[in-house]
Design a binder for these strands. Structure first.
Length: 487
RNA sequence: GGCUCCGUCGUCUAGUGGCCUAGGACUCUGGCUUCUCAAGCCAGCUACGAGGGUUCGAAUCCCUUCGGAGCUACCA
């Protein structure tokens, strides 16, 4: 490998949809590697397929990456000396190279129509032959070309794969070899001159001086084609980038993660209240490991520890439970100020609060008691709703649990003991209630406090009772207990 | 079908010939703690796909086999 500061890695998604878990894992590794080596991360948009690409996804991808904390040195928004970084803005460059390949004899015009190709492919399959371009237009005579032209045919540009084989060393998998008889001549540019991935990706990696290509394993078998383009461009093997094909992230059904087998859109994780650092931490563990037993790491630690050598070659199954566990850990590690910053949008979105200073003060004092009780930020609204709801009412199910004589008695006793309490803090509240209900009435704590919990929070599951009472305030607490007493 | 990649607990992984009667994390189960729910703590379950070699010794090396995945486009 060349010296450290010259490392240039690229993340080059095709914006045909929202960035998903697999894309992000790749982006994360690209980023971590660039940062680890002190190199540059180049963000390039591969939008050569005009039929599938949508502009909105480009902006969405930018937003997602930024939200995750992954920054880039060259690319959309930041520019760079090798731009533009949208392939749709580099069309002339690809056209120029395609012409050069044609002139050099590395590529040739192919006049076969899609239907003809498909027909021949079916025939190959039927005869148990490897399907692929059969080389029909490889050596057309001038008269044949005239003939096709007079038929009004427009040619595509097809790369000639010479006999032989391509061998390259994948940084994760070792030496990989493809015999060219299994790598048919491939199309570089459509009849209208627009480039295909195979052309654009190779040209850009060379022009943008990419030194390391870390990408999904699905591109492994397209590597010989990419190398063929390098050769046509005049590169020596020592000038090829280093390839590292990352293992897949798979869904529950053992297939590549997709919308069908799991939640893949990062937007969804964001809405659920997963922290960017938790997502990155978890994703980093899919196909890579720090080496020791420490799994909960910061972005900083990831950068320090990440090496391609430690990337696994086998695919990993996505496990929501573990992501949640890590997210819970990260949430618990937040300072209250940070936690507040993350919590507010969820509270406001759920219309639990509007965002007044008074509300913020309450939320801030309530956060410590729910911090270790949630796994996702989206759980916050339901947990704190009882503190803000205007017309509080215990719902039927829960109400049914406190209409029995014992519960009613607890509420009545609690009411009389609580009303005189002057300093309304959880310590005082707890001691009063313990004396009255546990010592004097001889009740089991879980029985005694359960009735009160339901009466004031509306649910048998809530944050700690005494702190909840304190946060609610004396007035509302008393009122709710009164309301829960049947007569 | 062909080509290529991959194969350690349910899941993510540690492991590069002896440190492995295989370690950690998540999940699950049981327990402790306890005002609910959590958190925390303790314990337990469970794996080298299979079969052959090589070796004093193999999860680690070799072969075969089985299984899974990707590719096989004028998608990327």
């Amino acid at each position: 490998m060349s010296n450290k500061s010259s490392v240039r890695v690229r993340f080059a998604p095709s914006p045909t949809g929202d960035l998903h878990v697999g894309n992000i894992r790749t982006a994360l590794f690209d980023w971590a590697y660039a940062r680890h080596t002190g190199g540059k991360l180049i963000f390039r948009i591969e939008d050569t397929d005009t039929e599938r690409v949508t502009d909105q996804y480009i902006q969405a991808a930018i937003d997602t990456l930024k939200w995750l904390g992954l920054n880039w040195d060259e690319g959309p928004e930041v520019g760079g000396e090798y731009g533009p970084y949208l392939q749709s803005q580099r069309l002339e460059i690809y056209a120029t190279w395609a012409d050069k390949f044609l002139a050099q004899g590395d590529a040739y015009h192919c006049y076969c129509s899609g239907e003809e190709l498909e027909e021949r492919r079916q025939l190959q399959m039927k005869n148990n032959q490897a399907p692929g371009y059969d080389g029909k237009c490889r050596n057309l005579s001038a008269t044949q070309i005239q003939e096709f032209k007079s038929q009004g045919r427009k040619p595509v540009v097809r790369m000639r794969m010479p006999d032989g084989e391509t061998t390259f060393v994948d940084a994760i998998r070792g030496e990989v070899k493809f015999e060219h008889k299994y790598v048919p001549d491939f199309v570089l540019a459509r009849a209208d001159g627009s480039p295909l991935y195979t052309l654009a990706v190779a040209v850009d990696d060379v022009l943008m001086k990419i030194t390391h290509v870390l990408r999904g394993e699905d591109l492994l078998s397209s590597t010989p084609r990419q190398i063929r383009v390098y050769q046509a461009m005049g590169l020596k093997p020592s000038e090829y980038p280093i390839f590292a094909h990352l293992p897949f992230v798979m869904g529950q059904d053992n297939a590549k993660l997709s919308k069908r087998n799991g939640e893949v859109s990062i937007a969804w994780y964001r809405e659920q209240g997963f922290l960017p650092e938790a997502i990155c931490n978890y994703l980093a563990l899919l196909g890579w490991s720090p080496g020791d037993d420490k799994e909960n790491i910061t972005m900083q630690e990831l950068v320090e520890l990440f090496t391609v050598e430690r990337v696994n070659s086998s695919p990993a199954r996505f496990d929501m439970k573990k992501l949640e566990a890590i997210n819970g850990d990260k949430i618990r590690a937040l300072t209250i100020d940070e936690f507040l910053k993350w919590a507010l949008p969820f509270l406001i979105n759920a219309k639990v609060i509007t965002g007044t200073q008074a509300e913020l003060d309450v939320v801030r004092s309530a956060l410590p008691i729910i911090q270790e009780r949630i796994v996702k930020l989206a759980e916050i609204p339901t947990m704190l709703n009882f503190l803000f709801v205007k017309n509080f009412k215990v719902e039927g199910d829960e109400m049914g649990k406190i209409v029995d004589p014992d519960s009613q008695n607890v509420l009545k006793v609690a009411l009389t003991k609580l009303e005189p309490v002057q300093s309304w803090d959880h310590v005082a509240i707890e001691s009063v209630l313990r004396v009255a209900l546990i010592e004097e009435l001889g009740l089991k704590p879980r029985i005694a406090f359960s009735a009160l919990r339901i009466a004031v929070t509306g649910s048998h599951i809530s944050p700690p009772l005494f702190e909840s009472l304190e946060l609610l305030g004396k007035e509302r607490s008393i009122a709710r207990i009164k309301a829960a007493i049947s007569n």
